[in-house]
Design a protein around this nucleic acid. Structure first.
Lengths: 211, 211
DNA sequence: TGAAACACTGAACGGTGTTCATCGTAATGA
DNA sequence: TCATTACGATGAACACCGTTCAGTGTTTCA
């Protein structure tokens, strides 16, 4: 009983110690130069030991990535303003891109790598956050803030836009980008602009609209 | 003289034989499961021999990818209609996405992988095709077909949109996409729509516009 | 014909992820 | 208290990987 509990706790503690070292190594080296053997050296054990705590490399890294997307999720939810859903949408998209660019290795692992079975077994935070965004989009449509359409199609369109800028800038850091921030703004704002109901005139106009 | 030539020809012939086998293997296995040793086995030589013809794995694969992007480039240029640049733009973007989805492994290598020095040394077809697209955008602006703006910013916006759909669908083949083709169309058309000069009314309206 | 050039080989180096028999220790039941 | 069981950790091994290099056999040229 008690010893059972203690054992489980110890196991969890040990696996968190491994994760902590892995986090460091992963950020320092990126996915490809991250290796189980380096991690073992860092932790101070033999490679085989790691497999007592994690099924394989991808499962271990998935845990890392999951954590950090959990943080993103908290971040995004903090942007929500039920009284101004369009502003919410705007903030979400910008926060998403910022997160990706600030955590390129995490983003790469989550959205730019060929997925392995182990990666798919790990809980799909991305899917959860997508569902959440689709709900916001749907709500926007109900309130007439966005043109009525299939919320999935629209939410996926937004996601694809965010992903486009993010992954492009991660993948091609040396490309002579015009002005990164302006490009991000244009893409995100343009995407949402395109979804507004009949844009003879902007419905809300307290912001900075100029040339 | 003659023997020099013959030697060079032979060398080139051999390296093309290797590339042919590599093409097969690469398409069959993808970048990660593609290995120099497998290729050697396929070609019928020892791994070391491959290094007589190619500096390293990434150089070899880059050659493969370069070829296939060369094809894309030809494709894209074939879409050009000097009398209807907007239509040209529309066709280009669709052709680009189609190419990416039809050649996911090539696309992944070119635009979704961490770039190595060897990959950067290979001639950057993508850059060339980008310059070409930017010129079209600039021309559109001069003719008043697109709102005046920094052509680089606009061209990069378009590129990022194409890349977003393409890479997202490659990376997440199992995601429950709404309707792939409709999503592609919306993203691409929406992107260009957003660049049109003052859209009180669509300039062209022979299409299917309904709810 | 002898020498130089060179394509090619096989073996090796230093890495990788992962498995597994074995060993020592710690918990358990008698 | 002692014998037994359970189990975490180990080190060696497996099957790969990209890459290098001393040597070998053949071809080319003077």
């Amino acid at each position: 009983m008690t010893s059972e509990t203690r054992k489980a706790r110890k196991k969890q503690q040990q696996s968190e110690e491994i994760l902590a070292a892995a986090r460091d190594l992963f950020i320092r080296e990126g996915y490809f130069r991250f290796s189980m053997r380096k991690l073992a050296r860092e932790v101070g054990c033999v490679p085989g030991t790691l497999y007592l705590y994690f099924k394989d490399k991808d499962t271990l890294v998935s845990r890392l990535i999951e954590e950090s997307f959990e943080h993103l999720m908290v971040d995004l939810e903090a942007q929500a303003d039920p009284d101004d859903l369009l502003r919410t949408l705007d903030r979400i998209t910008h926060a998403y891109v910022e997160f990706g660019l600030a955590n390129p290795e995490h983003y790469r692992f989550a959205f730019m790598l060929e997925r392995t079975p182990s990666m798919d077994e790990a809980r799909p935070v991305p899917h959860r956050s997508y569902g959440w965004m689709r709900d916001i989009v749907a709500e926007c449509m109900e309130r007439g803030l966005l043109r009525a359409a299939d919320p999935d199609l629209v939410a996926q369109g937004i996601w694809v836009a965010m992903h486009g800028v993010t992954s492009a800038m991660i993948t091609m850091p040396k490309f002579p980008w015009a002005d990164r921030q302006e490009l991000i703004d244009r893409v995100l704002d343009g995407t949402i602009q395109d979804l507004l109901p009949d844009s003879d005139m902007d419905p809300e106009q307290d912001g900075d609209t100029n040339a």
